[in-house]
């Protein structure tokens, strides 16, 4: 049994408790509801899979005749509310918090950790007792590179972490090898930067010769605290979002 209803904002699927149908839900959801050109799809893939595996295995005890209702609503571009309801024992909000605590302490509760790490919020709907997860998909990294005769500008589309560093290294290296005096790293769309990225920036600061500068702009207040603590301000000109 696999029954699907969809419009632009919402997709609902009723399915039998079969592991083989989980792939189909993931494929249909991503094809119909997610802009895979603009957003990373791995998190939603993992979250749907884990929630449905949990419903088949623990909620419905692998009883194929028991049904699962899956729905996904678009809250805003790249942001979704996923709901999964099985025919098993009704979930209680208090149990969910305990589960999250246990999951954080137990390497065996990997599924719950995956869902919790990818989602903004997990809750139990008090009326339907469905498990609801809100997820914001990361935008695909676009470094927003523009090159002019007097400056290179980078306007990254999302938070910068170790996994996305190769293009940053490449463009900074290219700038260092050019005669362009200024490089601007505009963090208007960045909320956080990991320590591997900070290491890279500090490392590049050693190679910047007098007369050339790397400036970091539109830094939010939390990032500014981090830059102060790590003394990045000693190495680069840094301006906050409120200074712009």
């Amino acid at each position: 049994m696999y029954k699907l209803n969809a419009d632009e904002k919402e997709l609902t699927i009723q399915l039998a408790s079969k592991f083989t149908l989980i792939d189909r839900v993931v494929e249909d959801t991503i094809a119909m509801m997610v802009d895979g050109e603009s957003y990373e799809t791995t998190p939603i893939n993992q979250v749907i899979r884990e929630l449905l595996l949990n419903a088949v295995e623990h909620g419905n005890d692998n009883a194929i005749e028991k049904m699962i209702t899956f729905s996904i609503v678009v809250l805003s571009p790249g942001r979704y509310r996923i709901s999964v309801l099985d025919e098993g024992k009704k979930l209680r909000p208090k149990n969910l918090i305990v589960d999250l605590q246990i999951a954080a302490d137990s390497p065996r509760k990997k599924g719950m950790i995956i869902v919790n790490n990818f989602c903004d919020d997990i809750s139990i709907n008090p009326e339907t007792f469905a498990i609801e997860a809100i997820i914001t998909l990361p935008q695909k990294m676009d470094w927003g590179i523009s090159k002019e005769s007097d400056r290179y500008t980078l306007l990254p589309s999302r938070d910068i972490s170790a996994t996305a560093l190769t293009p940053l290294k490449r463009i900074l290296r290219e700038w260092l090898n050019s005669s362009v005096p200024l490089c601007e790293l505009n963090l208007a769309r960045v909320e956080s930067i990991d320590s591997i990225t900070l290491s890279l920036l500090i490392s590049f600061s050693k190679e910047i010769v007098p007369g050339r500068s790397l400036i970091i702009t539109n830094v939010n207040s939390e990032l500014m605290q981090l830059f102060n603590v790590t003394q990045l301000k000693r190495l680069f000109t840094i301006t906050g979002a409120e200074d712009e």
Binding site: D120, S123, I134, S192, Q225, L226
Partner: peptide, 17 residues
């Protein structure tokens, strides 16, 4: 830098010093 995401807005708030 532990943070929570506001489920309504999607913005994150850091624990901070």
């Amino acid at each position: 830098e532990l943070k929570r995401v506001d489920p309504t807005t999607g913005h994150s708030v850091m624990l901070s010093p």
